[in-house]
Design a protein around this nucleic acid. Sequence first.
DNA 1: CGCGTTTACTAAACTGTTTAATTGACCGCG
DNA 2: CGCGGTCAATTAAACAGTTTAGTAAACGCG
Lengths: 368, 368
Amino acid sequence: MFRIGAGVVEGNGVLSRKRKRVTLRDVARHAGVSPTAVSFAYNAPHQLSHATREHILDTAETLGYQPHPVARTLATGRTNAIGLLVPTSLNWMLHDPLFTHFLGEVGAACDREGKRIVLASMHEAWGRDPGPGSEAVTPFTWLASIAADGFLMFSIDRGHPLTEAVQRSLRPTVLLDSADDLQAPTFNIDDHGGAYAAAQHLLARGHRQFAVATMTPRRDGVVIPSIERRVRGFAEAVAEAGLPPSAVQIVHARGVPAAGHESFQNIRQLRRRPTAVFCVSDVRALGILSGARREGISVPDDLAVVGFGDLPDASVSSPPLTTVHRDIDSQLQLAIRTLFQLINEQISEADIESPHIDATRLVVRESS
Amino acid sequence: MFRIGAGVVEGNGVLSRKRKRVTLRDVARHAGVSPTAVSFAYNAPHQLSHATREHILDTAETLGYQPHPVARTLATGRTNAIGLLVPTSLNWMLHDPLFTHFLGEVGAACDREGKRIVLASMHEAWGRDPGPGSEAVTPFTWLASIAADGFLMFSIDRGHPLTEAVQRSLRPTVLLDSADDLQAPTFNIDDHGGAYAAAQHLLARGHRQFAVATMTPRRDGVVIPSIERRVRGFAEAVAEAGLPPSAVQIVHARGVPAAGHESFQNIRQLRRRPTAVFCVSDVRALGILSGARREGISVPDDLAVVGFGDLPDASVSSPPLTTVHRDIDSQLQLAIRTLFQLINEQISEADIESPHIDATRLVVRESS
DNA sequence: CGCGTTTACTAAACTGTTTAATTGACCGCG
DNA sequence: CGCGGTCAATTAAACAGTTTAGTAAACGCG
């Protein structure tokens, strides 16, 4: 077993990362050309004769020259990275399959374009004790400190500390699943309409007493606008059917993966037993399904369950989940494409109709 | 509903991101001080009198000055970011709960330190058709183009195209779950020993015919060293018990989340029916459990199942999963801390004993 | 009062690259 | 032979900060 013990492998140069960086100027000097020529060798080969170019590339190779990405960025103004701003802690978000799906797709898109993703979670970024003598971190300074050409943000509400910062930012920013009156290109889905349709469906099936399973409100007051819209949409449809407000009982549960079980318990403890439950997300609904299975409650006979999102898992659960379908991928593709176009200045923000709202539709399966 | 239609909101300056950047020099000019003073106001407050500092900060505020992160990086040599190099496509990795856990923890650690994560997937990075006239992307140039102070990599094998690049890199790199003879600080776990213990356990329970459920080999030949070690560890223990090689049958399945079901089907089709199956990961084992439940196969009576990793889910499955426990968090904390120390030059690579191998231990529950 | 130290601030150099403007050589053409 | 036009390469100016070395004034002190 190979081992890098103290002093065991030494002096062959491989381990020493201290050696001074070889700069473009060094290459130029050794090759006997100007720094510009070296730059051209990489970025504008046609400006150079084939012979000199080869010569420059050779000397660069032998010297072990690595172009300095930061210096390049400073000169070109392009970081080749987009900032993915996570509204809470990354840890928290990663438990949400919707987010991991988002992240994966963004990753694939960036991969195709040769771009990098800079992940920054906004949660603990500010309000932290400022370093010795330096100012406290504000949303604005925080955003400014991220080296990216543009930003992608999820679930931003009106009141979120970052909204103002985003609007003052110099870099294009695209919002997903956010409030729909923010001054930045926003790509949402029809949460309200989807939830409304879910309610209508359940009403048509004869249900009159409902539970809505949603998140426990965050202590920091951060609101997830898309979820709010879903709850409102559902309640509105029920109200318009002439039922009293008490026909909709809201149950909260915290966390994303385990929340389903907790929700289920809470539902069982309601005095007025609901015959149907609408969940603001599929994970929650799937959790309720498994809770019901465990307790011998029959779905949909004893309890109808409707989810939101139509994750891949929703169609293979038992029973298959009735849920509100959204086309995540097309929404995301459009958002990312828009962001790239904004970055490349192929379009301007004024050209974008915002918010862009993708349709949703109810997919009726066997859980309702 | 607010709407940024073409020309609807215009000229209030909020939407225009074209306005020229306010530089440190601008602030200096307006405040009537030298550029140095402005820099000091942010980075070395004690060098300035309280009054001038306030004055500078005020003018900066009114001018809307944002320090340029890239320029700062170029001058200081600090990006305040670490590169997370994903060995395959990000999309693929995100389906692995182990990776998302890793990512979440790295995120939390970076959050604490005020650092950013640069995500870069190596999968498609090179071998792509080179841009017009520019050189093809090589692992080395690719790595060099990432603006980060150091790198964290998962599952790197000897033959991986990046290994050489990492060793030539100027920036500290820490490896996790990788080959254990690479010339970089490596933090592994005792895969071999864990799998060996799992086999011994099953042998002691009287099993004589085994299946090992592992990944389908990747077409690109990339090998996941930790998984190789597990398979070998298991096979070795069985061989040392005097059983013939045929006592261990290897079943492959692709993908991470759905692989469990596929593995289960494959196991059922084996001519020599195994009485116990060892899975190289918990997800796979959990999938087999649910496949068995669906088909009415009793675990552990008809089939004993042992996983690897001891994810949170493993203890709450039905039946609770016997699995090889690893302390992911401590491994990760140590790796990250080491990386930060290397970046800050508080330690040198020669001081690090590598590979660092965390112990694993078998946790016997009810699936075996 | 003169000497050394601190305080508050500045000028200039430095980080490594791109890019606009420029030069000089060479070529064909009228 | 002189003139415009490429071609190949160079010079110099950005890009937006940090940092080192230095200076003038103020201060403390015997």
